[in-house]
């Protein structure tokens, strides 16, 4: 029987991360990571002045 370990939230990182690990007899058989936040920065700069793009996209991560 696989044991499922869920770490949500993963701290000391920028953003939102959830990690799920399945362990069977002490061996990891499956693992999933999900980033749980979306802003659509790529979409929102479509059609904008190209000089604005570095200003906006650098806000992807402030750390």
């Amino acid at each position: 029987m696989a044991k499922k370990i869920v770490v949500d939230p993963v701290t000391r990182i920028e953003g939102h991360l959830k990690a799920e690990v399945e362990v069977e007899n002490g061996v990891i058989v499956d693992a999933r990571c999900s980033g749980t936040m979306f802003r659509g920065l790529e979409q929102l700069v479509i059609g904008k002045d190209p000089r604005d793009v570095p200003y906006v996209t650098e806000r992807a991560c402030g750390v």
Partner: peptide, 13 residues
């Protein structure tokens, strides 16, 4: 504060 807290996962919750 998820960026600086020592604990993680359900402990932090």
């Amino acid at each position: 504060n998820t960026t600086i807290m020592g604990s993680t996962g359900h402990v932090s919750v």
